[in-house]
Amino acid sequence: MSGKSRKIALPGRAAEPAGFAEPVEPAERAEPAERGHPAKLAEPAEPAEPAEPGVELGVGETGGPEGWLAKAVERVVEWAGQRGPSAGERRILAVEGRSGAGKTTLARAVADRLAAPLIHMDDLYAGWDGLDEGVTNLRDWVLEPLAAGRPAAWRRWNWAAHAYAEEHPVPDAGWLVVEGVGAGARVLRPYLIGIVFLRSSPAVRKRRALARDGETYAPHWQRWAEHEDRFYATENVTADLVIENEEH
């Protein structure tokens, strides 16, 4: 990954003067949710921010949640299109960020625009304590084979059975999008064209996740939050493009 990081500050955040560096928010625990596989929530310090405020987009420019998504997709596709292949003949894009930040929504829309297969890290984690194994699986099952010009396939974690289940071949395509905590891990960076990081305030992320996943995640909330905290503290994920998402 080369070049400076760029940040898009999306609705819900006032435009900042040039040269303004946003302070890192204090760590905060969030509360639970679930959808049959992990919806991880927690808010320790975010990964390193770009040194510049980047492109500021106001509410009027994005036109609400649908406008936010359209604008964010355009920016990501424009930026990604300037990168060359990163694993064999593929361009592989990682979409990172904490639970409720909008990773899945953005990644799905970007993948649709690029006609790219989409892999969710939620399908690769080996349960609630399997973040690290999910990262290793992505490298061993998908990224290394693609970089070597070989077919790749990954196995889905069955959250109900607590075991890996069926195998999914990675379709042929010029692109691959991977979304979820861990997609931007240090060991994976050599295979990526870059990392897009979605960021939202703790309150907004919590509201989204609970609305999406309900209350059944409560017993696992802190457990996963600690894994997420540790990952970001040790990996120091540095994004190429940071997108603020305060849409409700």
Rank of each mutant, 00 (worst) to 15 (best):
D123N: 09
L124R: 04
G127K: 02
H162C: 06
A115H: 05
P47V: 08
V110M: 10
S86H: 05
A203L: 05
A165W: 03
G97W: 07
A126C: 08
A203W: 02
P190W: 15
W175C: 01
P65N: 08
K71N: 10
L188Q: 06
N158A: 05
N158S: 05
V237C: 06
P85A: 15
R29T: 11
V204S: 04
K206R: 13
V135M: 09
A163S: 14
E25H: 06
A15P: 12
V73Q: 08
S86E: 03
A148L: 14
E34D: 10
S86F: 03
A107I: 08
G194H: 08
E74K: 06
D132L: 09
A107F: 06
R205E: 09
G60V: 01
N236E: 13
L210W: 11
Q222R: 15
A101P: 00
A9W: 05
G54Y: 02
A152C: 03
W128M: 04
E226T: 04
L188H: 04
L198N: 08
L106C: 11
W221K: 14
G3E: 11
V59K: 14
A239L: 09
P151V: 03
H37Q: 12
R212E: 11
P53Y: 06
A160M: 03
E167T: 04
T234W: 08
V204D: 06
F20M: 07
L106G: 08
Q222Y: 15
V110D: 11
E25D: 11
N236M: 10
D172I: 00
W79Y: 09
T136R: 07
R223G: 14
Y232H: 11
V135A: 09
A72R: 06
T234F: 10
F197S: 05
K206C: 12
N245G: 08
A218D: 15
V55L: 15
E74W: 00
G149M: 07
S5V: 09
H168Y: 04
E28I: 00
G88W: 13
T234E: 15
G63E: 08
R230Y: 01
A239Y: 05
G134P: 14
V196E: 13
I92H: 12
V170T: 13
G130K: 01
A42L: 04
V142H: 13
E43Y: 06
A45Y: 00
F231S: 06
E66M: 05
P190V: 11
R113K: 10
V242T: 09
V59L: 14
E179V: 01
E167S: 15
G214A: 14
K4M: 07
S5N: 04
T105A: 15
R13H: 13
G97N: 08
V242N: 00
Y217L: 14
E16M: 05
I243N: 12
W79T: 10
W79M: 09
G58D: 12
W221D: 10
L93S: 07
R199F: 00
E43R: 06
V242I: 04
A239G: 10
S99V: 01
G174H: 14
G58P: 07
V142D: 15
A225W: 07
G81D: 07
T216W: 03
S201K: 12
